[in-house]
């Protein structure tokens, strides 16, 4: 009878703590369950066993992010840049450094020129928008690759809304269009960029689409009024103001 309940709880929770309980009780109770297979019994025993699964459930979600430890190169960067490196973590074996905006360009120059580092290729440059983080709404994400060492590193520089980020296109020429795209999509300005203008959207397009407050649905704006002369679109206006937080 109690064996039946023991079988149901392990599904959502971890199996380790459950098994130790069952293994101890199994041998004396197995004879009882076979003899009296009656249904009203389970609800009575259920409350006593219930508290254990909810406890196990939150503990089951392991974080995939952890601090970097024992990497001499990362230690050297931490030593050189001190408090400017606010975070050095790894996710799924991928190393991420978070650096203050003031020393972001200096760190990039160091990673490019340093003899042991030699991150000679800028694989990608992008950003992400976090409206809830006041003072650090944007995050410029830079993915670097070192062809001699076959190694990757990810640099993140937090920015406030409206704050400009130093341009790395002087270090890696390939970052030129990536920074233009980031400017186009997020409105982040890059100081020292040789040619900062929109790249995918029209030059007079209002707004920056990858910001979280920008709606996904079609809307008329100054640009469409100016450039699209004849338009008869019948669309569902009920969906038009779905915010990011309400999407679940």
């Amino acid at each position: 009878m109690s064996d039946e309940e023991k079988v149901t709880p392990p599904d959502p929770s971890g199996d380790q703590p459950q098994q130790s309980e069952t293994s101890g009780e199994k041998s004396p109770q197995s004879a009882k369950t076979e003899a009296s297979a009656d249904k009203p019994a389970p609800p009575r025993a259920a409350p006593s066993d219930k508290p254990s699964p909810p406890k196990a459930a939150p503990a089951k979600k392991p974080s995939i992010t952890s601090e970097i430890a024992g990497d001499p190169f990362i230690d050297k960067i931490k030593e050189t840049f001190g408090l400017a490196i606010t975070e050095a973590v790894q996710t799924l074996g991928q190393q991420i450094l978070r650096v203050n905006r003031d020393r972001y360009l200096e760190l990039c120059g160091f990673l490019h020129d340093n003899e042991t580092a030699r991150f000679d290729m800028c694989t990608d440059l992008t950003a992400s928008h976090w409206p809830e983080r006041s003072g650090q709404e944007f995050e410029v994400v830079l993915l670097l690759y070192s062809t001699p060492n076959n190694r990757r590193i990810r640099i993140k520089a937090p920015l406030a809304d409206g704050e400009a980020c130093p341009s790395v296109s002087g270090i890696w020429a390939g970052a030129n269009w990536m920074e233009r795209e980031t400017f186009d999509m997020f409105g982040i300005k890059f100081d020292g960029h040789p040619d900062l203008r929109r790249i995918l959207l029209p030059e007079d397009w209002p707004g920056h689409p990858l910001r979280k407050e920008y709606p996904i649905e079609y809307r008329d704006n100054e640009w469409t009024d100016k450039h699209i002369e004849y338009r008869e679109v019948d669309y569902d206006t009920s969906l038009i103001d779905v915010k990011y937080g309400e999407r679940k």
Binding site: P62, T65, T91, L92, Q94, D124, L143, R152
Partner: peptide, 9 residues
Amino acid sequence: PPVGEVYFS
């Protein structure tokens, strides 16, 4: 997926 980020190429 768990909270976190990944780059895969």
